[in-house]
Design a protein around this nucleic acid. Structure first.
Lengths: 348, 348
DNA sequence: CGCGATGATCGAAGCGCTTCGACTGCCGAG
DNA sequence: CTCGGCAGTCGAAGCGCTTCGATCATCGCG
């Protein structure tokens, strides 16, 4: 009576595949999910039918029946002062890795606020969440605990207990930079940081780097300054001026602000400081940026790709019901290039 | 016998709402969709129940029953040489606008290739697509025509017939820059463009700008050059050197490459050219960048937000079955700031 | 030679929603 | 009054998939 093809012409359903392969729909489903043993012959036949019919399961139907949407949310607040290209490296890595697990990625910006998270949860649109740019005291976190969807944070809040967090170990990164400079004999160093807004917001990675930097400098008895830096050339110029005025014999600089790297080098030159002869510079940034600078910068890599991949892997394991470590801190790796050298002998 | 609450405890269904409000499930559905008249009283009662129970319809179930997922795909290839922050402005605008239409946004990178598009289509995960960074001869386009999902392109391919495209009118933008310079009396001008890879890929916006620039320059009898420019400081320096060597009396410069704006200004200074006294500079870039430069740049704004919004609106109309214009070219608007001035008198 | 175990497959019952036709009062026109 | 029509609501039939028994051979073993 009713024709078996639905009104949206050309839509292949599991029933079409089943008929084509001469099996029951459930068998097709089991072939696809592997949740029951299927004989090799049948499996092959079904897979062939799937291929020739170009069958793709209806995402909504699957989500309804299985309680799994195979979609994860990427919550990506784009806040002032953050370096967008780096953020996108994370995002791309998340999407790519998610696809390896047959998941798609839903993009959420922060504009929706907590209601957005609640909606995701209740509507079962996504199975889990990955949150980026976590603040030390992030408003999303209490909410996140209410929901029973698994989530992974890229970055660390002040109270990471019970949450799954991944990030570069920025505290160590700050230390590693100091360590490298100290080993080269530098005794007076400064950190040029992210824009002020980033610190004021309480963004973990910025503060941690600074703390690591200052802590180890103190331990090693180095004279050290650290402060934010805005992104326009004038501000950079000015900031360098300040730093050099306060510490005329400064020889080591750490920069943790992707946007100002080139400008910083220019400003040093403008102040008559050669890199690395007079001042050594260590950057914390993606390799691409460090390599493109002149001179190529000694740097601690921000392993965006690895962090993104890791975040997805952890989320998948949580979705599968496995236990996962609360926090994964990736160890920083410093690559020596042309911007650091032994400290010049102090002028007499 | 079977308890009426599903195993996932705490999940509120339309049935719960119906019972709470003392109506049939279908009535709740009609309240939500507005597809049938519901008396004010009932509507109010239902809405109240929805609120107190904090009900959100199950996305999968809705997609299954209504053939609409309320999700759109944003296909965002991240290719070499593109300026990520600008791209993200588009993306954010798309997400924000989509939410106004109660749609969510699925993020696709290019890595999946054509199969990704096919999968989106067949699995009914998304209702429509927005494609970014369209190339003149984009491989995704023939495929797009096969699918019967509505789509909107941000950017223009070589053959836009039958496709819905939105973008800034880059051809006009190139012209507007020349026009402005010509009006100020400049007779010798050059365009500093995007990295070579962008042109070679056949990215429409880059080529169109260049063509508009050269066409109007020819018409107005200006001496004009145009060429790509890589993103590192050394390349910029070198490029500026070349241009000035070839055209020592050049006084007008258009830059269409967000990444090199600051470096370009520095390079001009290094070559002893003051801006705007010796050389006038017009940029094609977001306002933020133009304002932050020193001096603040006369610029043609890239209206990322408007383009994104427009793209979503068009897609929504197509989804609703309305006819929409094939191409929407937003007119460029030039804002005069401090980087352009009347051409200096030719040296005698 | 019979019987429980095992492997492979099927059928049917939902998952939570939308939508279509049917039903019920109630109003105004005849 | 009576009855067609309409506003407002209900019930039930799916949407395409997963999953849980149930079924049916087949097989090893006592």
């Amino acid at each position: 009576m009713i024709p078996r093809r639905s009104q949206r012409t050309g839509v292949i359903t599991i029933l079409d595949v089943a008929r084509h392969a001469g099996v029951a729909p459930s068998t097709v489903s089991y072939v696809l999910s592997g949740k029951r043993t299927i004989s090799a012959g049948t499996r092959a036949r079904v897979l062939a039918s799937i291929r020739t019919l170009n069958y793709h399961p209806h995402a909504g139907a699957r989500a309804l029946a299985s309680n799994r949407a195979n979609v994860i949310a990427l919550v990506l607040p784009l806040r002032a002062g953050m370096h967008v290209p780096v953020v996108m490296q994370f995002a791309v890595s998340v999407v790519t890795t998610a696809r390896e697990f047959d998941q798609d990625v839903l993009l959420m910006t922060a504009d929706e606020g907590p209601d957005g998270l609640r909606r995701m949860d209740a509507s079962a649109l996504v199975d889990g969440l990955i949150l980026m740019d976590v603040e030390l005291n992030d408003a999303r976190i209490p909410l996140l605990c209410e929901l029973d969807r698994p989530s992974v944070l890229i970055g660390f809040p002040a109270e990471p207990d019970g949450l799954t967090c991944v990030d570069l170990d920025f505290y160590r990164a700050g230390q590693v930079c100091v360590e490298h400079l100290a080993r080269l004999g530098h005794r007076e160093v400064a950190l040029i940081g992210a824009p002020r807004a980033v610190y004021e917001r309480g963004t973990g990675f910025a503060r941690r780097t600074m703390t690591g930097f200052l802590d180890l400098a103190a331990t090693l008895n180095l004279a050290a300054d650290a402060g934010p830096c805005e992104e326009d050339p004038v501000a950079v110029e000015q900031r360098v001026g300040e730093v050099l005025a306060r510490r005329p014999s400064l020889t080591g600089l750490v920069v943790h602000n992707e946007a100002v790297v080139d400008q910083l080098l220019a400003a040093l030159l403008a102040h008559g400081r050669r890199v690395p002869e007079d001042v050594s510079v260590v950057a914390i940034c993606p390799d691409g940026l460090a390599l493109r600078a002149t001179p190529a910068l000694t740097s601690v890599l921000i392993p965006a790709e690895e962090v993104g991949t890791q975040a997805v892997r952890l989320l998948m394991r949580k979705l599968a019901g496995e236990a996962v470590p609360d926090s994964s801190l990736l160890p920083p790796r410093l690559t020596v290039r042309d911007s650091t050298a032994a400290a010049p002998l102090p002028a007499r």
